[in-house]
Design a binder for these strands. Structure first.
Length: 430
RNA sequence: GGGGAGAUUCCAGAGCGGUCAAAUGGGACGGACUGUAAAUCCGUUACUUCGGUUUCGAAGGUUCAAAUCCUUCUCUCCCCA
């Protein structure tokens, strides 16, 4: 396998390189290298926060190297103290397995597992830890690193005051052994990860050096920050997930479309596989006509296809265009099937036809029949402030009774709270 | 073990017997402006059948009246040993 691109240079211009161990670039330029990144199965879906790691594996593979995604079935049982201020709760084995399988399925969508020598692979560290006894571990692994060395890590030092269990203290050894194991058995020479993983990764290279006299390398990606200083990957509604059941493709698409100008250039370098020249052209076009949001659209389209699929993207775009149009007419003109898709892609609630025939007070509709507002007081406030629209028409009467006359397209009512939050109410029989 | 300080609405943090659903700041939400951007400005931020109702670590008590006073309890922080 010929190296297609200089991975380090690639990461550098994409703004994805934080720290790198000396010699890493030479290693990568010498020939196909196997590298891995670990994922923590704390939830049954990966979120956009994990996307940076996934993309570094993807870029890695596109440069001609062989990526391995490690899912932490074993490390997940211990709990990584990095960046955590308090002891973590342990997940039970069933949850862990469920999460692990779900994440595995998501990772499989990104990497190519059938492209010859640099085909990707997924491994689970539980496989080599399940039969590793405690005594063997402390003799074979623990013996090589001193407590002094382990205590010097930031992840440990920062917890010395508040306390940390032996379990979490041991975490770096467990992760360090992963690297050793993969180095020895799978020819893995490089571990990557977020900058908070540097300490854990280095424990791995150190273990390889001391235990086997071998050499291994490391690089980390920076933590993504938004221009306004808030955390990347979260919105009012919470985390943005890759799982369509948790975050619909429409919301996923909207998340990227809403990226601020100040952030979008960074994002597109990280989350798209477009080449530098192409991105720079887009940026030029964007600054010439920022209101067209070409960068945001290009970014949103590419990621939505990669994470979901072409159909989901088409639907998300159709829904976005229809909902953000100026009047209800654009929506009413849609064919019934398309309209239904739009209604289904946004958050949907159901109410019965009979309830609607009797008439429902708008505040009950917002706070009781649905959870668009968290209480009636909240609903009242929203209406008084002009934040609620029905079928794109702003309402001002808090005592408004909603009945069948609000139905559009046969079985729907379109509710909007604020500028961007759309909900559809589906009228069900009886 | 001894001595001190504290626990207030999402967070930080005022309040020191009635004028407190509780200052101020942050966050969040809504509106205006725009490009579904940023910045800015304005408003809102316990629940309610709009009569009231339940909140200030927990449980009691004093009082016409308590976040504010007393008792006990729980937890947190600091100083000395």
């Amino acid at each position: 396998m010929i190296i297609k691109k200089n991975y380090v240079k690639e990461l550098t211009w994409r703004g994805m390189l934080q720290d790198i161990m000396p010699g890493t670039e030479d290693l990568l330029n010498k020939g196909m290298t196997t590298g891995y990144i670990g994922f923590d199965p704390t939830a049954d879906s990966l979120g956009v926060g994990n996307l940076v790691q996934i993309m570094s594996l993807l870029h890695f593979q596109r440069c001609g190297h062989r990526p391995i995604a490690l899912i932490g079935g074993a490390t997940g049982m211990v709990g990584d103290p990095s960046g955590k201020s308090a002891e973590r709760n342990l997940l039970d084995e069933n949850t862990l397995n469920h999460n692990l399988n779900a994440q595995k399925a998501q990772l499989e969508k990104f990497l190519n597992f059938d492209c010859g020598a640099n085909s990707a692979a997924i491994v689970n560290n539980y496989d080599w830890f399940k039969d590793f006894t405690f005594l063997d571990f402390i003799r074979d692994v623990g013996k090589h690193l001193t407590v002094n060395y382990m205590m010097a890590k930031d992840s440990v030092k920062s917890r010395l005051e508040s306390g940390m269990s032996f379990t979490e203290f041991s975490y770096q050894l467990v992760q360090g052994y992963d690297f050793y194991y993969l180095w020895k058995n799978h020819g893995v020479m490089l571990q990557m990860g977020g900058s908070d993983q540097w300490g854990n990764i280095v424990t791995g290279t150190e273990l390889i050096r001391r235990k086997a006299g071998g050499e291994a390398f490391a690089l980390t990606t920076p933590l993504i920050k938004k221009a306004d200083g808030t955390k990347f990957g979260k919105t009012e509604g919470g985390n943005i997930w890759l799982d369509p059941k948790r975050t619909s493709p429409y919301k996923f698409y909207q998340f990227w479309l809403n990226a601020a100008d100040a952030d979008v250039s960074n994002y597109i370098r990280i989350f798209s596989v477009k080449e530098r020249e192409e991105i720079e052209v887009l940026e030029a076009e964007h600054s010439a006509a920022p209101h067209l949001r070409l960068l945001q659209k290009a970014l949103a389209e590419e990621i939505t296809i990669r994470v979901h699929d072409e159909d989901s993207l088409t639907q998300a775009k159709a829904a976005s265009v229809a909902l953000f149009g100026n009047s209800i007419d654009g929506l009413l003109d849609l064919p019934q099937a398309t309209f239904s898709e739009v209604a289904d892609s946004i958050t949907q609630f159901e109410i019965t036809a009979s309830a609607l025939t009797q008439g429902i007070n708008i505040m009950d509709l917002l706070a009781s029949s649905t959870n668009i507002c968290k209480s009636k007081s909240d609903a009242k406030r929203a209406i008084e402030q002009g934040g609620i629209s029905i079928n794109k028409e702003k309402i001002s009467d808090v005592n408004l009774i909603i009945n069948t006359s609000s139905i559009i397209k046969g079985i729907y009512i379109l509710l909007q709270s604020g500028k961007k939050n759309y909900y559809s109410i589906k009228i069900t029989a009886a």
